[in-house]
């Protein structure tokens, strides 16, 4: 896969190694509790629209992506980070949205233009939460 650096001015640069982004974006430290809230939040992460999370009592969870329970066993933090930042780097046809990308997007609504779906801090929060999910 080689090394890839984001050229978007506003975004923290990152390097891809294999199928991972090993280093935290901007050197930031994630907060798993905030990450858990973001995954659930219907405005910000809204991940459960496509994924099942770990709380079976949460109504209406999606069936489009893999279930998130146990994802920390399958993938390490760097691998999870890459899949959140821009899963299309691994699979060009992916349905998983790019959460840290502002380029090569079409017809973005004005309110979201030029901004990534999640900030570097929010990505790190979600990464730290998902990396901690080691049970099914």
């Amino acid at each position: 896969m080689g090394t890839y650096s984001s050229t978007a001015l506003a975004l923290e640069p990152y390097a891809v190694v294999g199928d991972a982004i090993p280093r935290p974006l901007g050197g930031l430290v994630g907060n798993p509790a905030r990450g858990a809230a973001l995954v659930r939040d219907r405005e910000r992460g809204n991940c459960l629209i496509c994924h099942r999370g770990t709380d079976a009592s949460e109504p209406f969870q999606g069936t489009i992506g893999p279930p998130l329970a146990g994802v920390g066993l399958r993938l390490d933090a760097g691998q999870i980070r890459l899949r959140l930042v821009d899963a299309s780097l691994l699979n060009p046809q992916t349905v998983m949205p790019p959460y840290f990308r502002t380029e090569n997007l079409h017809d973005v609504a004005p309110a979201y233009r030029g901004k990534p779906a999640l900030s570097a801090q929010e990505i790190e929060d979600v990464v730290s939460y998902l990396a901690s999910l080691k049970t099914f």
Partner: peptide, 23 residues
Amino acid sequence: RQGQLNLSCQQCHDGLVGQKLRG
């Protein structure tokens, strides 16, 4: 593909037919 979430109509309405998107 379009929008910040970078999805086409086709990805949902061909590829994901029958799947649950929330409710």
